[in-house]
Amino acid sequence: MTEFILIFRRDIEEFTQDYKESLATAVPGIGKKWFSWMGKLHEEGRMVGTYQRISKAGRTVMPDSTVQEKPYTEIKDAFSGFLIIRAHDFDEALSIAKDCPNLLQNGSVEVRKFIDHNDQVS
């Protein structure tokens, strides 16, 4: 099996607003869906590591060594977390991503294959 990274993105302003407005109702419900989805992946032996959430705060070091105060400057969607999985091929990794609860939160899931050092970069 090949390893893939699933990168979760959300509109940071929408996510922050949704979270504040629905902390008591929506968050526990979507949390159950996340745990169920990840539990299934774990049972199938597909999870390489645990899900990692990423803070919206951060800094970016630029080529001239200056530091920008935000990790994203021109994009609307923020990188909110990732999960490394195993799948037989790209199509199977995409199928797994299509069941991700982040899609129910108006987010996206970017799927990328880890490159073996013997593979061509593409």
Rank of each mutant, 00 (worst) to 15 (best):
T2N: 15
T2P: 11
E3P: 04
I5N: 07
I7H: 08
F8S: 02
F8V: 10
R9H: 10
R10G: 03
R10Y: 08
D11K: 05
E13H: 09
F15A: 14
T16D: 09
D18A: 03
D18P: 01
D18N: 11
K20T: 06
S22R: 11
L23Y: 11
L23Q: 11
P28M: 10
G29L: 15
G31Q: 12
K32M: 13
K33E: 13
K33N: 01
W34E: 01
F35Q: 15
M38I: 11
M38S: 02
G39H: 03
K40G: 00
K40Y: 00
E43F: 00
M47G: 00
R53G: 06
R53K: 11
R53H: 04
I54L: 12
S55H: 09
A57M: 12
G58V: 06
G58D: 01
T60G: 01
V61Y: 00
P63K: 09
S65G: 05
T66P: 02
E69C: 05
Y72L: 15
A78E: 08
A78Q: 13
A78Y: 08
S80H: 13
S80C: 15
S80W: 07
I84G: 04
I85E: 10
R86P: 01
D89R: 00
F90M: 15
F90H: 13
D91I: 02
E92D: 11
L94M: 12
L94S: 03
S95R: 14
I96H: 07
I96W: 04
N102T: 15
L104V: 04
L104F: 07
L104M: 15
Q105N: 14
Q105C: 07
G107I: 09
S108R: 13
V109G: 06
V109Y: 03
E110P: 10
K113S: 10
F114I: 12
F114A: 05
D116K: 03
N118I: 07
D119V: 02
V121G: 01
